[in-house]
């Protein structure tokens, strides 16, 4: 189980906690592997949630502006759909062949499962759980900085 981090215009309304359990304990997947992530939301009443978004995305980190690619996205709203997806649920999908996770000098590529909760009060909370796609080793450092 991993605790997520929150951010992106979010707030800790009712101090929710989202735990995610990956079917690969080391959270490393080969390209085109299937991934199942079971999540559990604690610390918030289901009645206070108006929607939940479950996504599997890659994003870039580092010196550059952040780029985001969405591989899987679903949004559930309405009482019946939320009852099925909360307080626990799972996301299953086949991962793409690229881009692979990468820890470079000025470019880093991360994959993650994001669970975003939208509260009836208007705010939202996002929990992000990183995993690796592929096993590219980290960059060994700068050889030359170009002008």
């Amino acid at each position: 189980m991993t605790d997520g981090e929150d951010g992106c215009g979010t707030t800790r309304l009712g101090a929710p906690k989202v735990g995610v359990h990956f079917d690969h304990p080391d959270r490393t997947y080969a390209p085109q592997d299937s991934l199942t992530a079971a999540y559990e939301v604690e610390g918030v009443a289901v009645a206070d949630i108006r929607a939940i978004e479950r996504s599997v995305v890659w994003y870039t980190e580092g010196k550059g502006e952040e780029d985001l690619g969405v591989h899987h996205f679903d949004r559930l709203e309405g009482a019946a759909a939320l009852r099925a997806a909360l307080p626990a649920g799972s996301v299953s999908l086949r991962l793409p062949p690229s881009p692979l996770s990468y820890e470079g000098v000025v470019v880093k590529i991360r994959w993650c499962v994001r669970i975003r909760l939208f509260f009836t009060a208007g705010r939202d909370y996002v929990s992000e759980h990183v995993f690796d796609l592929g096993d590219v080793p980290p960059s060994r450092g700068t050889v030359e900085r170009l002008a």
């Binding site: 010196k63 000098v105 000025v106 050889v143 030359e144 002008a147």
Partner: peptide, 24 residues
Amino acid sequence: LEMEESAAFRQGTDTRTERVVVWR
């Protein structure tokens, strides 16, 4: 043979690109 990383970012009103050779 070399591999380069490049990252474009905003600095004030400018858009700059940092380019780094990380393997050669």
